[in-house]
Amino acid sequence: MTGYIVRRVLSMIPVALLVTIALFVLIRLTPGDPVRVILGQEATPQNVKALRHELGLDESYPVQYVKWLGRLAHLDFGRSLASREPVRKAIGERLPATLELGLTGFAVGLIFAIILGTVAAVWRDSVWSRLTTAFSLVFVSLPNFVLGVLLILLFALHWRIFSPGGYVAFSRAPAQNLRYLVLPASVGAVTGAATLSRFVRSSLLEALYTDYIRTARAKGLREFVVVARHAMRNALLPVLTLAGLALGGLWEGAVITETIFTWPGVGRLTVDALGRRDYPIVQAVVLIAAFSYMIANLLVDIAYAYLDPRISYGRR
């Protein structure tokens, strides 16, 4: 097992390098000059030259890349080109908001997904199954920005139950924070429930047709026990995989939700930074997202190796 983990971790190194190179090249392929954006309309050519030098953008790409990697080795993400704020601080400030929104939406979505998916699989041909399937297909087919806008229109403008958008830190005003949280978290929860419930359904269906379930049924176990104790345990493994991966790429959906609901999280920071060509911030965020995805992947694989003895991890 230890050997497997070591091999698995070592195999991440080339992937990580590939990610850093692709990221670095892709961002610099994108036309647009951060210095021009920072200096604005009154800039003189001398200003542009001086600032480009100060920010180290006049060096060749390979040199910039190597310097960046060197700093990364010390976990130093550099400073934002625009605000000169340390990138680590910029992201650190926004992370709680993104995590709060993302995790709430995700957790609620996962719970609903399991309930709906189970209903759809167990009572396969019932009206309930059709309804839950319809629910998931309807909301999977609905772009999340349309859903967000609809929620604002109904709950904030028409009925005035919630605020149309905004944020205060939970530590500062918990009640107010939750009031702001409900609508954007609902978007995440509904989308998550719709997506994941389909996988719960299909993997539970698959599990229900395996031999050991037939054996369990043949032994005369009650259907509830069969589903809850036997099928569910196996069915949830792939679901948790997917959930783990979804968690790794959590902030992705946040890009649009955060924009609509003016939630000051990492997603919006990235889109803003990309628009300003604030390379250090974009690079740091993407890298963190990529690494968290890779680590989630690793943990899922390790969990698999522990949980499912049928999977062997010898050399291929």
């Binding site: 604002i152 904030a156 403008l157 005035r160 605020s163 149309p164 958008g165 905004g166 924009t259 609509i260 609901f261 003016t262 000051p264 919006r268």
Partner: peptide, 18 residues
């Protein structure tokens, strides 16, 4: 100074008094 990038959300915040 509250940053609200979306113009409709911004106006909605004014309408609700936020």
């Amino acid at each position: 100074f509250k940053n609200i990038p979306d113009e409709n959300t911004r106006l909605a915040n004014l309408r609700t008094g936020d």
